[in-house]
Simulated assay, not measured.
Amino acid sequence: MRWALAASFIAMGLWILVPDKLDDDEANTSRSHFGVFGTTVVTFFLAEMGDKTQIATVALAARFHDFFGVVAGTTLGMMIANVPAILLGDRFAHRLPTKLVHGIAAVMFVVLGTMALFGVGV
């Protein structure tokens, strides 16, 4: 398992360095059926399914038997966690050089993969 984890982190770090290329169809965002809101809903839904947040939500709903309280609490918690990230991303997205951000992310993934490979921090 450690080898697979290390390999996947190192591979991800190297993959980040590959520049993104958009086809003409992909670059044309005006044809989107969902718009930015729908695309965000679908993407967020798929990314969040089965993670720790969902498991915690199920546990809270089972424990407290309060549908609206759990929905309101988890929604507010996710908004408190995500709104600052969205605001910072919007503010700095055009100021930060993409190559530098990709380079830093790639180094982080490779370092984490190397640490996993040698069992450092376990």
Rank of each mutant, 00 (worst) to 15 (best):
S8E: 05
Q54P: 00
D20L: 13
R63N: 12
A27K: 13
E26P: 00
R63I: 04
A61Y: 06
A105C: 12
A59N: 10
S30R: 06
L88N: 02
G38D: 03
W3D: 12
M1P: 08
V70W: 02
W15I: 14
S32L: 05
H102W: 11
F37T: 14
D51R: 01
F45Q: 06
F68D: 04
A85P: 00
Q54Y: 09
W15S: 13
V101G: 05
K52N: 06
N28C: 02
L5W: 09
G113M: 00
V122K: 12
M12A: 13
A106K: 00
V41F: 03
A81E: 06
I80G: 05
N28L: 10
A56D: 10
R2Y: 08
V122E: 12
A85E: 07
G113K: 00
F45P: 01
L46G: 03
N28T: 09
V107M: 06
V41P: 00
F109W: 04
G119W: 05
G113N: 01
D25S: 14
R91L: 15
A72V: 02
T29P: 01
G121H: 05
V101F: 07
T43Y: 08
L60P: 01
G89Q: 09
S32H: 03
N28Y: 11
G69D: 04
A105Q: 02
P97V: 10
F9M: 05
G73W: 01
P97I: 08
T74L: 09
K99H: 11
L76E: 06
D66G: 01
T75L: 15
I80N: 05
M79L: 15
G69L: 04
D20Q: 13
M49P: 01
L100D: 06
T57G: 13
G73D: 04
V42N: 07
G113S: 03
M49Y: 14
T39V: 07
D51W: 09
T74P: 00
V111I: 14
A116F: 05
K52P: 02
W3Q: 11
M108A: 15
V101S: 09
V36G: 04
N28R: 10
A27Y: 08
F67E: 11
F118P: 01
W3F: 15
K52Q: 11
A47M: 11
Q54F: 13
D24S: 15
H33F: 11
A81I: 11
T39H: 04
L87P: 07
S32F: 05
A72D: 03
L46T: 12
F67Y: 14
A93S: 14
G35T: 03
V71Y: 11
L60I: 07
W15Q: 11
M78H: 05
N82M: 13
I104M: 10
A116Q: 03
H94F: 10
I16H: 05
G69P: 00
M108K: 01
F34C: 04
S30W: 02
A61S: 12
M1F: 09
G13F: 01
T39L: 06
T40H: 12
E48V: 07
L100E: 08
F68M: 13
N82Y: 14
T53Y: 08
Q54H: 10
F44T: 15
A4P: 01
G113A: 03
K52M: 13
R31M: 09
G73S: 12
T53N: 06
V83L: 14
D23Q: 07
A81V: 12
V71T: 08
A6N: 02
R91Y: 15
G50Q: 02
